[in-house]
Each structure stands twice: as structure tokens, then as C-alpha cells.
Design a protein around this nucleic acid. Structure first.
Lengths: 150, 150
DNA sequence: TATTGTTATACTCTATAACTATA
DNA sequence: TATAGTTATAGAGTATAACAATA
């Protein structure tokens, strides 16, 4: 460890929302990824598992649309969750399946939710509860606008 | 286009800051990537270019630390910017180089900054100026806490 | 015709390890 | 010993195109 702290560089994008969003989100995802390693799940896989848990019977196309993921990208994730015995596919209409968690998937989903809750409590403790609520509301307000612009 | 809108799925992570951060950030980055395609730059390359423009003489190691990027990952980006004639490397201390923009890099940097400004104005127009300021302040407040937790 | 699931493929970003050269 | 830059490599996530089967 050098004891001399180097002078910080100027951040020309400091005042840009997109830049700060990216920096905070990236750090947050890295922290969550670390918290989920013991469950052998990435944040993405954990999110898909929780979506299936919350929406039993939904097809992977609908899950994908809801998470803004391509069908082509969600397919291997579903296969992985099924291979791990966390979800099952029930024939839906001949070309699609209704997804649902197995008991093992349900149990893991509960654990994942708790891990995310703990991870967020630690990561966001610098913000007051009011500030956390404010931030959440602003982000949710953004969601509609951002989706429309894409 | 089907005229029947499908029922929205439940979002079990709706109330989680990390989830909303990720969704908004991802959409924002996709939008910016699109806005930068004509300049043949990704958001990451554009950010590195602007960092060099704002901090002439800085080494790539310092740029990388400031952007939370590994030396190994920033090396090819620097090589690419140099190959494109956007930056130059001046010998610094025998094992490192001071980076600086060429006139071409300066000009492109200005254009990139304007593109980002326009992109953000469009994407964040759903928020009032006060809300944008609030969001920025909350994100910046997070930065310190998040960095400490990693 | 449109949708579902799948495969193949490529690209970006990231993470780690190892190496050389220099401080 | 620590740091700078580089290379190799692997992994996650995403994008597009194409295909067969079904609606």
C-alpha cells in the first residue's frame, strides 16, 4: 500500500445521470454477484428464477419480454435452471411451455430473495430510508420514459 | 402487432433499488450506444476518450483506476484510440506513458460530449430538473458507500 | 403470417493469471 | 517489492439471423 494518495482525476461525466447510473449499477451488480456465488447463481439467473417463482405458468417468452431479454438469450438460462432441478416446464400450447419452480427452486428462490435483501441493506445504508424511497421512485418514474425511448 | 396487450407479469424485485438501477442503467446504456454508433465508439470508449481529454498527461493505469477498470481491460481500448489517431502516448517514466488527445481526438471528444448531452436530455425528459438533480445527488452519495463495500 | 423455442455466431465488457520492464 | 503495460484466456451478457414447429 502506498501511503501517498494520488490526486484524483477529473471526471468529465460527473454531472451526467447516465454515467453515475452506470457506475453505481455496475458496483451494485458486482456486489450482488459476489453475494450469490455460494448459491451458484448470477444476478441474472437469480432474477429469472424469482420471476418464475412469482409468475408460475408464464412462458419463457413472456419472462424475457418482462425482463427486456431476447428469447435467444433466455433459452440457455431456462435450460440451466431446469437442468439444476430448480424449475419444470409443463406443455402449454404445443409450441411453448409454462414454467414453474420445483420445491427446490422455491426454496432457493426464498434464499435468493433474502440474500438480495441483505445485500441491499448493506450497500444502501449510506442513504436514509427517505432517500432510498426517493431514489426508488425516481428510478421507477424513469422506467416508463426509458422504455418508450428505446 | 397483436392488438391484445398481454397482462403484465409481476416483478418480484420491483421494490429493490439494485434491480431498478440495473434496468434503467441498461436501457440508458443501450440508448447511448445507439447514439454513438455513428462515431464508431462504444459508451466505454467514449468515456475513456473524455477522461483523457479532461486529464491530459494521465497514465492509463490512473484512468483505469478512476473508472474502476482493470489495467488488462483498458490496454486494448487505449491501443484502439491510439490506432484511430485520437490520442498519443508520451513517454512518462520509462514504464508508463502520459496520454493526451490529438486535435482529432479533441474534436471527437467535443462531439461525444454533445451527443451524450442530447441523449440524456431526451432520455431523462420525464424527470423535472429538480428530480434530475435529486437523482444525481442520490447516485453520487451512493458512489462513496458502494465503493467502500467493494 | 406471427409466435415460440432453439442454435449459431459475434461483440462488448469483465476477471484472472502470467510475463517483462521499470520504480 | 510494487507498479505499468501487455497478452492470453475465460466468462457473462447481449445482439442478430436463421430454422422448425405451431398458432
Amino acid at each position: 500500500m502506498s501511503e501517498i494518495r494520488e490526486r484524483a482525476l477529473l471526471e468529465p461525466l460527473e454531472k451526467f445521470l447516465g454515467y453515475q447510473l452506470r457506475r453505481v449499477s455496475a458496483a451494485c451488480m458486482a456486489h450482488l454477484a459476489n453475494a450469490l456465488t455460494a448459491q451458484n447463481l448470477s444476478p441474472t439467473l437469480g432474477t429469472v428464477l424469482l420471476m418464475i417463482k412469482a409468475n408460475p405458468g408464464a412462458t419463457q417468452a413472456r419472462i424475457g419480454r418482462s425482463l427486456a431479454m431476447q428469447r435467444a438469450n433466455i433459452a440457455p438460462l431456462i435450460a440451466r435452471l431446469e437442468h439444476d432441478g430448480l424449475i419444470v416446464r409443463k406443455v402449454c400450447d404445443g409450441r411453448s411451455f409454462g414454467l414453474a419452480c420445483t420445491p427446490k427452486g422455491e426454496a432457493l428462490g426464498k434464499r435468493v430473495r433474502q440474500i438480495i435483501t441483505d445485500h441491499e441493506a448493506e450497500l444502501f445504508r449510506a442513504l436514509t430510508e427517505d432517500e432510498q424511497k426517493q431514489l426508488l421512485d425516481l428510478l421507477i418514474k424513469m422506467r416508463g420514459s426509458v422504455a418508450a425511448a428505446s
